[in-house]
Amino acid sequence: NEAEQLTPLLLDDLTDENLQFVSKLKDSSSSCAVDVSTVWWEAAGRRELCVVTACEISVSLWKPLAPDHWGRVYTWQLGEIPVIQIIPLPDTCNLICIALGNLEIGEIRLLLYSSANDSFKQSLVKTGNIKAVLGLKDRRLVSSSRTMQEQQVEVVSLSETGRSKDGQTLMPPEETVLAFAEVEGVRDALVGTTAVNSVVVWNLKTGQLLKKMHVGYSYPASICHRAYSDSGLLFVVLSHPHAKESESCGNPAFRVIAFNPKTARSTGVMFSSLPPGHAGRQYLEGEVKDASAAAVLTSGAIAVWDLLLGQCTALLPPGPSGSWSLVRWCVTSARLLAGQTDGSVYVYRYS
């Protein structure tokens, strides 16, 4: 009984202390928000952090006009194939990348502004049965795609107008790659997680597949979010959208695993479990930035964790107008974008 009485109090404190509401953006024309992101956008010599909202048939760019007020800059209409997600491109300006498809990604497009003829444009980057895609530094995109016979893992370079000629094919593992993460601290290293719970490491420059390391079957369908190398070890942040509760580590949503890439041996470093009262099924989707993770839980709440402490640090209950459906970190850290299915996006300061 004591635990039940304490839990709501603890969760209220988490929200009040660490997440402060900043502003709200409502796309009145949209009733089907599928993703939200931030992008640096430069116009008339002024560079601003803008919000990008996507619904199934269009993508809109919003710029800050005044405190708590956003103005729509432009809306790209996409046509018949629905938008599935926005693909963030690190360190880029005036470039938005999106994935379109039905059950899986069938097309990747760039949305951009062309100063040469003063117009907003879109261009096709890639088509296929695309299983995973990630925006890399230096305006590159890595993707895994499958044909009946084989898997292709490809890095494409992007120009201001679309796909560049230079690219690199990476040696594919036998199993399907479901997620990618660049390795911080090792230039040219890339990791991926596969459908049979392996972490694979590539050399982006040569295309070599350097190592395949098994994660273990305790937490199936692990997805890599972030990787960094320190003191000869490769640390990988994994999420477990479908993990089951275990006695030893509770209900883990995220894990930090240390791999020795030389021997392929690994050990768990930190577990981040669901907050009290959220046992059972895990979460719908989540995102990691630096040492912070955020996810929408099946209860309709948003949870934020400090991955180094292994603790839930904030909890945002479902809002008055409904459950949360999306959560994304801003390009600049310490800001969180929380989306609802009616197209409303709430900006929170996270401290």
């Binding site: 040219d188 350097l210 190592k211 003191s231 791999f259 030389k262 021997t263 690994s266 050990t267």
Partner: peptide, 23 residues
Amino acid sequence: CSESDLGPISLNWFEELSSEAPP
């Protein structure tokens, strides 16, 4: 975690694996 659990650690793991892996 200790080195004995994970085996011998190399600070240059990326370069070493790149020189060992097939091109």
